[in-house]
Amino acid sequence: MNFSSHPVFISLTPVFLLIGVGFLAGRLQWIRGDAIKDLSNLVFLVLIPALLFRTMSAVRFEQLDLTPVAAYFLAAVGLLVLSIAWRGFNCRSVVMALAGVFSNMVMIGITLVELAYGKRGLVTLLTLVSVHALILLTLGSVMLELAAARETRRAGGEPPHLMATAMSAIKGALIHPIPLPILTGLLFAQTGWSLPSVIDKPLQLLGSAFGPLALVLVGVSLARTPMHGHWGPALWIAASKNLLLPLLVGLSAWGFGITGLPLTVMVVAAALPIGANVFLFAQRYQVVQELTTASMGISTGLALFTLSVVMLIMSWLNPVVITG
């Protein structure tokens, strides 16, 4: 078989070439650190909402299947809890465990899944994306506050109020440029109306700009990621994220009787590298910040190989129609 003509290779190549372009631009200082925040705001506040709302504005509730999402979170939450138990219950271990289960579904996953599995695959992924941050980040917030309260008590201080923290986390996850346009797009779709072309066309153009710019931005961020001195622990976290989680998600989905495209999309979503939101927790709680950054960089770099392997295995075990 000519691997260069395989649909998996055809889908992955543009994704990692664009990340490579961003990495080169970051190394050569064509895009400097001061510009990264503005580019991130453009991607997250303008381009992503346009893409997500337009995609979901044509999806009826009866087209959605939540069983794959349930299978995904059974595996992800299970691995999160086991990872914390293995390392010990403290803020450091919660952040490291979260890094081992939180996928970069938006910046990398959306473009990759649409290239590889078309619109049907993207709808399956966006159903997962709509609750991914809400569930994992809220759970992570609660666990971190519990761990922080435990550490504060041991130090003789006054712990924060847990319920207020949990409600703040839920509110922040809902009023967010990712779940909000997905949910509003779904609600619009239930009206049976169609977007007027004068609105649909600009949304289409903005959504088209998301993929290339988001991937280039991943590369720029990767170029500025320090990894010195953290290779060993970071490799373990990256292995958990890139290899162990997709294996567990695949087994969980198999147990639920899920087959076809939903199974493949869930496993590929689990195999995506570590998402950037994990670093926000490391920064907020002032723990393992350099290790988290290094893990994200190594996980993204390894994904060139691990994602290829996972997608190839899924194409052999669970053949689906892949669109280029």
Rank of each mutant, 00 (worst) to 15 (best):
V15Y: 05
S130Y: 08
E62Y: 10
K37T: 14
P319H: 01
L122N: 03
P273M: 11
P262A: 15
L247S: 05
N318W: 13
K171E: 09
G88F: 12
N104E: 12
T67H: 11
A238H: 09
K171Y: 06
A270Y: 03
L235C: 14
L45S: 10
K171M: 10
R154S: 10
Q29P: 08
S315M: 01
K201N: 11
T306F: 10
M143Y: 01
L213D: 05
G118Q: 04
L244A: 15
S11C: 07
P179F: 10
V287S: 03
R120G: 13
L80V: 05
V129L: 11
L247P: 02
L205C: 08
L243K: 07
M311L: 13
Q190W: 04
Y285L: 08
C91P: 10
D38H: 12
K201V: 15
G22L: 08
Q204H: 11
S103D: 08
N277G: 02
T184V: 15
A50F: 02
L248N: 06
G140N: 01
P212T: 02
V15E: 00
T259L: 11
E290P: 04
M167G: 02
C91D: 01
V77L: 13
V101W: 04
R54Y: 00
W193L: 14
R153V: 15
S308W: 13
L66M: 12
T111Q: 04
A169K: 02
T292Y: 03
T184Y: 10
F9Y: 14
M266I: 05
Q190I: 05
M167H: 10
A147F: 03
G88M: 11
A214C: 09
A25R: 00
V81M: 10
G172W: 05
G26W: 00
N277R: 04
P160F: 07
T323Y: 11
R60S: 15
A282L: 05
W30I: 10
K201H: 12
L28I: 04
I258C: 01
V129I: 15
N41P: 00
R87T: 04
V95T: 14
A294L: 07
T225N: 02
M163K: 13
P233C: 10
G250W: 15
R87P: 04
K241V: 04
K119P: 11
Y117L: 13
F210Q: 00
S308K: 01
S308D: 03
T152A: 15
A97V: 06
L243Y: 03
L206V: 09
I48F: 13
S308G: 14
A269Y: 06
P246Y: 03
I258L: 08
V309I: 14
A99N: 15
K37R: 13
L304S: 09
R224D: 14
V129R: 06
Y117S: 09
I199D: 09
L248Q: 03
R284T: 12
L217H: 08
V265A: 06
S252V: 04
